[in-house]
């Protein structure tokens, strides 16, 4: 039996430990820089390890930009910030050709790279730009390249878009279309800080300025993390669970819930299942395991699915949000797919 097993593929503890230590170090540093955001830091790091783009939603002043800046410093990656405004043009992001005179007196069009040519792009208040400008990011986010005048240019690797949007002051904003939302691995809600955290901030931070990270990761270490990520094992029952969970967001699915049937208009795409699998791997890595468990899927499911499941007006009338829908799915769907009768249940010994 053991002859058939792929013994060389599973990460051994001694291989995994350095990667886990690195992630713990990043998380500790982030927690030191930004107070009271441990869960958010964990999800952001999962997103980075999954090489996915993250949409941060929160009111102004909760530390979205500070988080992205600290992350860039910690990962030792190039970081550009673009403040999206209604008059922002695609060329302002991806770059443009300008006429320049060469030393020999000739003139030629030379490409002036935009801010997208970086490792981490902070698209601040992305929903304030026009759809035309928002769509300029589509290729960059999916293909990690930019095509201008028929000339395709690869973006630096790794490339992450960390966008932020404000859930209030929606007048004059352009909600992101589903196609663009689907390209974000996570949509993370950045909540208000509680009293203890606020107390810590004002007592320890002069003018609220966060401390500069004292440590940063090298490019090699980052690549090492990505290599470890590739070797995190996804067991078949877990991948099956991810597939069933994604399919269950469809109102016509066999394993769906009454809430989904009642409130969901558009279900999650296959890209959601892929994102969930990747994010689950990263979650397992952060937990120090070489294999993905059901708990990893459950940890990332809401962040992966909440912006991909589109609800109808009835849900708005009944004050039902996507988190409620995803929670009901997670509570209802049996991870192990045992298909046991309702009156038969398994309890941990």
């Amino acid at each position: 039996m053991s002859e058939n097993k792929q013994s060389e593929n599973l990460l051994q503890p001694e291989e995994l430990s350095p990667a886990v230590e690195l992630t713990e170090k990043v998380l500790a540093e982030l927690d030191r820089v930004l107070l009271g955001r441990s869960a958010l830091h964990r999800m952001v790091l999962i997103g980075i390890l999954s090489q996915g783009h993250i949409l941060l939603e929160g009111v102004p002043g909760v530390g979205k930009t500070a988080l992205v800046k600290a992350l860039g410093q910690l990962l030792n990656l190039d970081f550009n910030r673009v403040q999206f405004t209604p008059d922002l043009m695609p060329g302002d992001i991806v770059g443009t050709h300008i006429l320049q005179q060469t030393p020999d007196g000739h003139r030629e069009m030379s490409f002036q790279a935009g801010p997208v040519f970086t490792n981490i792009l902070l698209a601040d208040e992305i929903n304030r730009a026009s759809p035309k400008t928002q769509s300029a990011l589509l290729e960059a986010m999916q293909e990690r390249s930019v095509t201008l005048l028929g000339n395709t240019r690869a973006l630096p690797s790794p490339f992450f878009v960390l966008a932020s949007q404000n859930p209030i002051e929606l007048e004059g904003t352009y909600p992101l279309p589903e196609a663009q939302l689907d390209r974000f691995l996570f949509k993370l809600i950045v909540p208000h800080a509680d009293v203890d955290v606020l107390d810590d901030i004002i007592s320890t931070r002069r003018r609220g300025e966060p401390p500069v990270p004292t440590w940063s990761m090298s490019a090699g270490q980052l690549n090492q993390l990505f290599d470890v990520m590739d070797r995190i094992f996804l067991p078949k029952p877990v991948s099956r669970y991810i597939s069933r969970l994604t399919a269950a967001t469809h109102p016509n699915a066999s394993e769906t819930t009454e809430d989904v049937k009642k409130y969901v208009t558009y279900a999650a795409s296959p890209r959601a299942a892929i994102a969930m699998a990747e994010a689950s791997r990263a979650s397992a890595l952060l937990a120090g395991r070489p294999t993905v468990g059901f708990e990893d899927v459950k940890a990332v499911a809401s962040a992966v699915l909440n912006h991909r499941v589109i609800l109808n007006y009835q849900a708005r009338f009944d004050s039902v949000d996507t988190f409620t829908i995803v929670d009901s799915l997670l509570a209802t769907l049996d991870e192990t797919d045992l298909n046991l009768p309702d009156d038969l249940e398994i309890r941990s010994a």
Binding site: L10, F233, P235, K236, V238, A284, R289, T291, V292, D296
Partner: peptide, 9 residues
């Protein structure tokens, strides 16, 4: 955490 599942393959 998936180890038992992984042990099958």
């Amino acid at each position: 955490g998936g180890l038992m599942m992984a042990a099958e393959t």
